[in-house]
Design a protein around this nucleic acid. Structure first.
Lengths: 123, 123
DNA sequence: ATTATGCATTACAGTATATAATACAAAGGA
DNA sequence: TCCTTTGTATTATATACTGTAATGCATAAT
């Protein structure tokens, strides 16, 4: 998994990391049961602090995306116990509104959404 | 236009205000050429600081959603000079990924997106 | 025993956020 | 002309968040 960070973004690093992992799971680049890098390894590899990575892992764990074991590290959760948050819906509505105001046609927006979804099908 | 703010959210107030105005424009609740409340009026009405409202207006102006006149206040921009930002695309991908991981079917997700889009058609 | 793991704690510096008070230039109304 | 309203700018302050750093702990496999 290739991780990229935008240090000038207003989105915190731990959130950027969390988001990339969520997308990676949805895209099948990380599969249920698969082990994630250890906090220390990911921190060193990415050049960001261990606690920052830990924050992302705690968030993913709390959301049900991963499970952690004090000994075996973190693994991708198997079930679909993830519930849709209120923020997810709000953000989706916002982004579709932005696309609409940019002049995109309805069909084009829906095609875009479909494409983004399909990227999770073992591309 | 009814404005609501979540003071416990990690999303800044000025961003919450900006988002609500963008959605209102997309939904046709604010039409091109229509006047927005003055900064002072909106601040007092919402109970948030004038400068916080000003930040939201400056952001909307910079993005091309509104135009401001030192005398006549702020009005909704007419043209579709708004361009899609990189963040918009990233967020859209993220939220669709989250919906997918929640177990929602592709058709349901696309239906949801369509519904959110259609809410801009003079509901 | 040793080691690696997630996790916790404490401290620190930097940045962002929100508020507050004050003021300014522009433009319309009285 | 004088006053008011407008967006905008400045300065200051308090608070919270973010990221880093160092250190340690309980757990469990080796």
């Amino acid at each position: 998994m290739i991780l990229t960070f935008d240090f000038s973004s207003h989105v915190p690093l731990y959130m950027q990391l969390r988001n990339q992992i969520v997308i990676a799971i949805a895209q099948g680049k990380l599969n249920p049961g698969e082990k994630l890098p250890t906090i220390r390894a990911l921190a060193e590899e990415s050049g960001i602090n261990m606690m920052t990575v830990s924050k992302a892992y705690q968030m993913l764990k709390q959301e049900g995306y991963i499970v952690t074991d004090r000994r075996h590290g973190a693994t991708v959760a198997s079930g679909k116990s993830v519930s849709v948050s209120e923020e997810t819906m709000k953000e989706l509505k916002l982004r579709i509104s932005e696309l609409r105001l940019s002049g995109m046609k309805k069909e084009d927006i829906l095609s875009l959404c479909e494409t983004l979804y399909d990227q999770g099908d073992n591309v």
